[in-house]
């Protein structure tokens, strides 16, 4: 599933460009200062790797599967042989990819809501939590589901800590950041943020997961969908609210 979602995401990123035919310009330069340049290159590496990785499991899923060309068979053999190092590379790159969106936004110093070093870690943890929720939901192995439910509980805890810390930082910051925080504390994003993202997308699924671990029969889909929806709404709100914040002069 991962490679296809990745490509879907890439497709949407492409749609968002306004000078689409020049997108290849991303790959004629490496700009260390620009987070988007990092993102583009990381995607360039991780997308094919993710396809190779998934394809190497195809025979386990579909035992009758045969690759049409010889070199694909050989490639598959290579991937299977080097699964551990490839896994490490992919973990590293997926961490960069996960934290990249937040760093991208935090690098825009003109948007006070985004301009905080906490945004990267927050986006990363939120992304990991939605990932854990997906495995919790899709996995057929009981042990794996339990493990990822436990992991998700920790991730939600870290996420809540980071959110509180984020607003503490804003309120102790300059005027523009206090204004940015007030959008969430008593402004128009207060209800969707605290209601949909924090309560429905974190606190409620947290309790459902605890109950599930204690043996109560709760369909795994419910907390998982809540977390996925919460993660999506979190991103939509942060992007939209961030664009509304600016320097005053």
């Amino acid at each position: 599933m991962a490679p296809f979602l990745l490509v879907l995401g890439l497709f949407f990123l492409f749609l968002d460009l306004k000078h689409k035919l020049f997108f290849w310009r991303l790959y004629t330069t490496i700009r260390l200062e620009s987070p988007m340049s990092w993102g583009a290159w990381v995607l360039m590496v991780i997308t094919p790797l993710s396809f190779l990785w998934s394809a190497s499991y195809l025979k386990e899923l579909v035992p009758t599967w045969r690759w049409r060309w010889k070199f694909l068979e050989r490639l598959e053999g290579l991937v299977i042989r080097y699964r551990t190092p490839i896994a490490w590379v992919m973990i590293l790159y997926s961490l960069i990819l996960g934290i990249y969106t937040g760093i991208l936004l935090s690098a825009f110093n003109a948007r006070p809501l985004w301009n905080t070093a906490l945004l990267g870690p927050l986006f990363l943890v939120s992304g990991l939590s939605t990932g854990a929720a997906t495995i919790m939901w899709m996995s057929k192995i009981h042990l794996e589901r339990r493990l990822f439910t436990r992991i998700d509980l920790i991730l939600i805890g870290i996420e809540l800590f980071l959110i509180i810390h984020l607003f503490m930082g804003f309120l102790a910051g300059p005027e523009v950041q206090i204004e940015a925080a007030s959008l969430f504390l008593n402004g128009r994003y207060a209800l969707p943020f605290w209601g949909l993202v924090v309560v429905m997308g974190m606190v409620l699924p947290f309790f459902l997961e605890v109950l599930e671990l204690r043996g109560k029969k709760i369909p795994a889909a419910i907390p998982a969908i809540l977390i996925l929806a919460g993660g999506l709404i979190f991103r939509i709100i942060m992007v939209e609210a961030g664009e509304a914040t600016r320097y005053l002069y």
Binding site: L17, H19, R25, L26, M36, F108, A110
Partner: peptide, 17 residues
């Protein structure tokens, strides 16, 4: 212009719009 991909990052990063 022919290096710009229209991603809009610079628009968001400018405090002066």
């Amino acid at each position: 212009p022919n290096k710009c991909i229209g991603c809009g990052a610079c628009i968001e990063s400018c405090p002066y719009e």
